[in-house]
Amino acid sequence: MIELKDIERYFQTGSLKTYVLRYVTAKILEGEFVSIMGPSGAGKSTLLNIIGMLEEPTAGEYWFLGEGVHKFNERRRAEMYREYIGFVFQAYHLIDDLTVYENLEAPLIYKKVPSAERKSRIADLLDRFNIVAKKDLFPNQLSGGQQQLVGIARALIGRPKLILADEPTGNLQSQQAEEIMSIFQQLNKEEGVTIIQVTHSEENAGYGNRILNLKDGKIDA
């Protein structure tokens, strides 16, 4: 599904190159649950952003479902977000002006899903995550754990093939974190959604089936 070949990311100041990522080569197959780990500043988030097409590598090739991402324009990237990729952020990033229901609806609207189907899909997810009662609340009326549930629901609503999660439990207490991680595991096992998460926690990584260790911008095999 994802193929990274010699991905590099550096900043050039004068003649000095500061590398964030160097010669990163990796292959992630459909159905995997990969955790990217490593010390702070190792380039974990940058790698995830590159996989999520939010950042572009300075050098190297990135193939997504057999297509060269380096050739994508903004329109094609928006298409990828709509069709294949769901994001889960550490800081949730729900839209403050929208209710829970509307936050879930937004991706479907952009995807031009008809209204009736939108309703049923949202109802399913609300039900599944046990947040039906919260659907008319605004994000600031929810706890962090609840917000992250909505965040995951939003990532899932478009039925993506890939979920990218950047420290999804970083802001949560351990009990909520466990809940979130088991949802990820369940998604991966039962629905075959590919998940890539960045995490500091060995425990979280344990939910996955593979770990990519990054150190100083390189994969530590």
């Binding site: 329109r75 977000y81 990033h93 729900l94 937004a106 952009y110």
Partner: peptide, 16 residues
């Protein structure tokens, strides 16, 4: 800016 960024990440095109 943040709101618009989020919208783009969940699939909004520039036109939208």
């Amino acid at each position: 800016a943040k709101e618009i960024g989020v919208r783009k990440v969940i699939g909004a095109s520039r036109q939208q």
